[in-house]
Nucleic acid binder design. Sequence first.
DNA 1: GGCCTAGAAGAAACCGATTTCTATCCCTAG
DNA 2: CTAGGGATAGAAATCGGTTTCTTCTAGGCC
Lengths: 342, 342
Amino acid sequence: MARMSTRPAQRVTIAHVAQEAGVSRATVSRVMNGLATVDPEIGKRVREAAAKLNYSPSTVARSLAIGRTQTVAIVVPDLANPMFQETLRGLSRAAAREGYRVLVADSIENPDEEVILAREARRRCDALVLVSPRMDVAHLGELLPELAPVVLVNRESPVPGVPSLAVDYGAGIRSILGELARLGHNRIAYLAGPETSHGNQRRLDALHSLPASAPEVIEIPCGAMFEDGYRAREAVLGSGATAAVCFNDLVALGLLGALHEAGIAVPERLSVTGFDDIPFARFASPALTTVSVPQTELGEQAWARLWDLLNGREPEDDVVVTPRLEARASSGTAAAAATSVA
Amino acid sequence: MARMSTRPAQRVTIAHVAQEAGVSRATVSRVMNGLATVDPEIGKRVREAAAKLNYSPSTVARSLAIGRTQTVAIVVPDLANPMFQETLRGLSRAAAREGYRVLVADSIENPDEEVILAREARRRCDALVLVSPRMDVAHLGELLPELAPVVLVNRESPVPGVPSLAVDYGAGIRSILGELARLGHNRIAYLAGPETSHGNQRRLDALHSLPASAPEVIEIPCGAMFEDGYRAREAVLGSGATAAVCFNDLVALGLLGALHEAGIAVPERLSVTGFDDIPFARFASPALTTVSVPQTELGEQAWARLWDLLNGREPEDDVVVTPRLEARASSGTAAAAATSVA
DNA sequence: GGCCTAGAAGAAACCGATTTCTATCCCTAG
DNA sequence: CTAGGGATAGAAATCGGTTTCTTCTAGGCC
């Protein structure tokens, strides 16, 4: 049987080591944790016994005894999204420096599942990071206290004492629109994100409260993924807009791909902008004009807040990140684009 | 104190619920797990007590008692790499269907750290997935038995009984070279990946064992990331090659970006190919010619193997995926490109 | 009506660590 | 010479569940 060769030996516990070394379990524990003063001779004997038996302590038993798992969970709406991957990475690397590990839970854009997942994930871990929760504010307000310690990313906290690292989506949208206005665009298409997305709501709020002098904005329902942007080409072209402001970079890149296939010059006939500044944005051709959200850093900041909370310290103040405009080649002056209007 | 509002109430244990319902802890456990036959009246009382106290069982204690954590770990060399993100996603979603969660560990391309991480991660979880381990084959062979149940992704297993999901990198490279040869290229640059990457070794092996009729290959040290490809432009142009075969899609896209900035036409003056077919490849402009590795599916397959192992079943046979050529717009016929040679 | 059995719930052991409490030993100081 | 004190290591309680074993009750059958 091939499997036999890989079957691990019967688990070695602290009791086995204690017996082998001829000491009590307490002493083994002390030696393994380098605690108290233990006779060097005994310490040596214990370590040798542990090595001989290839002992490795049970993390689960240890967690139960000390009341900590040294693990935090992160709940994201969609693991396929580069933004959430960045947050995960930032969190994971920052937490690792403190010896903590990260458990991931992917709600697959399902707000109900999200609530269940968050509860369940929290029970397994010492703390929780909720990224862009899709649940409505009522659920969120109800849930947060029982999830504490918890940190919100990409959304404001409705509960005092729950730190949040938010992004000023409105400012981001306004800086993009400002840039496009400067370039002479006065008819702009907005490719909207998922309706459940809090970030999309904020972008829409910003669009709806623009001064009268701002460019006209046509809203086109779209989505959050490549494919959504790719499929939106005709809707955008049909709108007569000279620029397309996309919900995020993925949508923008999808649209760019579709435009390229149709031989439509960017930015000559249509300017395209994204949101987030994912790593690919800079390397797209044409390089994508977008606003940068330092998502990796938000992941690291989330860890810093959690670490404060876990140590009973008052966490640092909430942060509202203002995205920075990254004007690149995919946006240009609104020129003869009007010819595409009927 | 703002923090007070978020401090969770003293943990509610099964003993509290038992007392509240006036039954034993054993009965509460039976009710919570829907086991055995419990008097409906008592069941109701227990459930009410649990609800009233807002009881949620300790996963840690439960794990210790039943000897399972319902968690698996995945160790990747670099969380920033879309390929590994895909594997993670496939694994996470497949495991979730069985009620399992995933712990991530990022070795940041450090083979020593990788060994430590793998051991540590395994202790916390029921099983382990090692993705593209960078450690040498001796370490790997030594480590795998003690990590079992474990599954390898992107690398063959040197230990019988440890399932592996490998990619036939050689076949991938050969199909790319075949396509380029067909297009008339006879001087090709290979932008090599990290030296510790097993996948890179395999690609090199394939390149070194080509028939004499194959195109000439110039090897250029590069890397695995965007930036590496971006920086490689001059080396590629200086080599006089008419096509650049890149270690992976990231490198290819970085190179494409650099070429675009320099106004060098792709594929007219230089054909560029990638490896992996990450989601962005199709949407790049020009769309990237590459070979597809179904990494999400490998993640799902990894879960299937682990699930078999966890249930004492013989896992399905190892898989060696042959990447499929995706000929797109970034490769074309080798034409007047020879003019770039001195 | 009495005996046997099945079923339901409690008591207690267990999972594998940590940690408090206690007992012992040895050394020093009065 | 003995009481006090500090250092070590063992015994036992604890963490919060699960599960085996035991007890008790009630129902069925002769």
